[in-house]
């Protein structure tokens, strides 16, 4: 898988590079306009640019996967003596790497502009050790992984059913449907198994929904907040892990054993 990862990165770094260069130019350009334009405008456009860069990168990476299944390079990749899991792993990892790179650079640029624009109002030393920040990061990564795997799975299923590549939008429909099914299942699951980890005491408790002040469903972790205490649903965490593994292995299996080019 490492060998394939190398070539995945080699094949995609140019476009990612372009996205980054554009992002940097826009962000730095805005940086010079601090003082001239309103801070909110600067930050607004910066955020928009970072978001745009991440979205472009994401769309590009998804499209790379789709192309592998629908265009001629599949004849090369799928005749290599490697398992389907290797292929999924390499695609997933290369996408995660680029998303991380773009996200980090985008984040830094954003902070750079924020620091200059808002000056003393911005403090971020302590953020990185904050427990909820770490949980947010883990949860964010899990969400991205899940979404990517779900997309890969949908594209693969779509390829197996429709031979005509012009009906390329089918995967998106499958993706949406699966998302709905999974979300529904999650909700039913936490109703059925309302066991949470109290993140202050790290003990397992059972919770009703009556005192809840804030619910945070962000794909991977289901968080409830009650008076500032954050509770994580255990069943949901297990489900998220199982889902990621299942989608990974499922896609790998389909690619290796069921794909018809």
């Amino acid at each position: 898988m490492g060998r394939l990862l190398k070539y995945e990165l080699k094949g995609s770094y140019k476009v990612i590079g372009i996205i980054l260069v554009i992002l940097i130019i826009v962000a730095l350009g805005l940086n010079f306009k601090i003082g001239e334009w309103a801070e909110t405008t600067i930050m607004g456009i910066t955020s928009f640019a970072v978001f745009g860069a991440l979205l472009s990168a994401f769309i590009y990476l998804v499209e790379l996967f789709r192309k592998e299944l629908y265009e001629d390079t599949g004849y090369l990749t799928f005749t290599l003596p490697i398992t389907g899991n290797s292929i999924v792993g390499a695609k997933l990892l290369s996408s995660l790497i680029w998303i991380f790179v773009v996200g980090t650079i985008g984040g830094l640029l954003g902070l750079l502009n924020a620091k200059r624009a808002f000056g003393p109002y911005v403090r971020f030393g302590s953020i990185f050790t904050n427990q909820s920040f770490i949980m947010a990061v883990i949860s964010g990564v899990a969400s991205v992984v899940t979404v990517l795997l779900l997309i890969y799975f949908s594209i693969t299923i779509s390829r197996m059913t429709i031979r005509n590549k012009k009906v390329g939008g089918l995967w998106f429909i499958i993706f949406i449907l699966l998302n709905v099914v999974i979300a529904y299942f999650r909700i039913k699951l936490i109703e059925w198994m309302p066991y949470y980890i109290d993140t202050n005491s790290w003990r397992i408790v059972k919770q009703g929904m009556n005192m809840v002040t804030d619910i945070n469903i962000n794909g991977a972790m289901l968080q409830l907040s009650i008076n500032g205490n954050v509770y994580l649903n255990i069943a949901n965490i297990i489900f998220s892990i199982v889902l990621m593994v299942g989608l990974f292995l499922g896609t790998g299996y389909l690619l290796e054993k069921k794909i018809d080019l």
């Binding site: 390079t73 005749t79 290796e256």
Partner: peptide, 19 residues
Amino acid sequence: VYTKSVISYLPDRNYLPKW
């Protein structure tokens, strides 16, 4: 996986990545 390692296949396609 094994058979792919002992078969050298030349398809009737442009199967090399463009980069």
